[in-house]
């Protein structure tokens, strides 16, 4: 009886772990990352994932002309920096936060609407010698209400 209970608890914990990670990610995006958008208004979309050092995520979005946007990328993965770049359809790199000391926000506007790709990569921490760490990465967008 005790053994079955133990197995049940282990199984329940196993299945609840990813869920718990997702919930923590949502809390992180909502409480920490959203604040980075201020004074822009958050568009209401939610994009977050658990990433490990060295892993990448990609996001495709249309940005509209005459709007001012802020992108906020937040990562909670130990000491690791999160690199992000914006790429157009010609694979031209329009922005890379590596050139801005890995800042987590970027403000921009467009003369004409464009579909762009955002590539986010969790870099390996320099002093990291142990197992690669994982954590939540949230990508949020804000715009100025006109």
């Amino acid at each position: 009886m005790k053994r079955s209970l133990f197995v049940f608890i282990i199984v329940a914990l196993f299945f609840s772990l990813p869920q718990s990670g997702k919930s923590q990610c949502k809390g992180y995006a909502k409480k920490i990352c959203k604040a980075e958008l201020s004074p822009f208004t958050h568009d209401g979309n939610y994009h977050a994932a658990i990433l490990t050092e060295g892993e990448e995520a990609e996001l495709y979005k249309t940005f509209y002309s005459d709007q001012e946007y802020r992108i906020a990328i937040c990562g909670a993965i130990g000491q690791s920096n999160v690199e992000f770049k914006i790429v157009d359809a010609h694979r031209n790199e329009l922005y890379n936060n590596r050139n801005d000391d890995y800042t987590n926000v970027w403000d921009f506007k467009l003369d004409s609407s464009q579909q762009l790709k955002l590539v986010v990569k969790v870099l390996k921490a320099e002093d990291e010698t142990e197992e690669p760490q994982s954590g939540c990465v949230a990508i949020m967008f804000g715009f100025k209400v006109k």
């Binding site: 208004t41 568009d43 209401g44 990448e56 996001l59 590539v119 990508i139 715009f143 006109k146």
Partner: peptide
């Protein structure tokens, strides 16, 4: 190539704006 792919639609708020 990426681990996670997001397709970000304009939200209803952005669409209305």
């Amino acid at each position: 190539q990426a681990k996670q792919i997001f397709y970000s639609m304009p939200s209803p708020l952005e669409t209305a704006m």
